[in-house]
Design a protein around this nucleic acid. Structure first.
Lengths: 118, 118
DNA sequence: GTAAAATGCAACCTAAAAGTTGCGTGATAT
DNA sequence: ATATCACGCAACTTTTAGGTTGCATTTTAC
């Protein structure tokens, strides 16, 4: 199954799935929420106050990075993570597409029923 | 972490996570895509042509149902599934919220830098 | 009334996800 | 120079996800 997005790039369902899956975890959602501050955050910053270990946070960040939701750069001994909005926009668009399909299908069904009544 | 949506209901991050997680699987995404036709589909209908067993499809449908993305009704010996757009709208809104936070944070940072230069 | 269809349920298997501990290695502050 | 900070990596454990097979139950078609 395929679907073309705004920039006319063809995106496989698989790509969407990996982005959704990356966001499908409370810990990662709260990491994302911390990263919306605009600034880059180091792993230690992102891990402090957390109930899980720094190493576990690292794993989550790599899942997010694998889905393209964040990128990282090194600065001395720190690894800095920041958001990339593009995949967010992509799935937002996909969700809009699903809604649109559904709405159109419903209105087709509705007019079909109305035609049947005549 | 909390976030209020359009209908002023307070939604926990956990709820979003379960919706994202439900969509974070290729098989379930293609089930959703089948269900956008507007009509209800039975489990057997949804399973035919699939590489996995009918029982596995049932499990996926229950994950979707658990996240509120689909609902089911019984009709004789058939179990019919149909989409519910609300959770789709919810996470679409959440994604918009994240983008907005990020954009605002960036513009604050930008004006901060500009102030520093004066 | 019997066979076939549609489903539910339980037990089981396997692989992956989520998390831990332990240790090693560069950067940095003092 | 030497602690200490920030991190990477590897091994390991536990839990969950995804999938299967087998069988029972309820509808429905003929």
């Amino acid at each position: 199954m395929f679907h073309s997005n705004a920039k006319n790039g063809t995106v496989k369902l698989q790509n969407y799935a990996s982005v959704f899956a990356a966001l499908g975890d409370e810990t990662r959602l709260s990491l994302v929420s911390k990263l919306t501050s605009g600034r880059s955050h180091s792993i230690s910053q992102l891990a402090e106050g957390s109930k899980i270990t720094r190493q576990a946070v690292t794993k989550h960040l790599r899942v997010l990075e694998g889905a393209g939701l964040v990128h990282s750069t090194r600065n001395g001994r720190e690894q800095l993570y920041h958001l990339d909005l593009r995949p967010f926009k992509d799935i937002e668009e996909y969700l809009g597409f699903v809604s649109k399909q559904w709405d159109q299908a419903l209105s087709r069904l509705k007019s079909f029923v109305e035609d049947e009544r005549k």
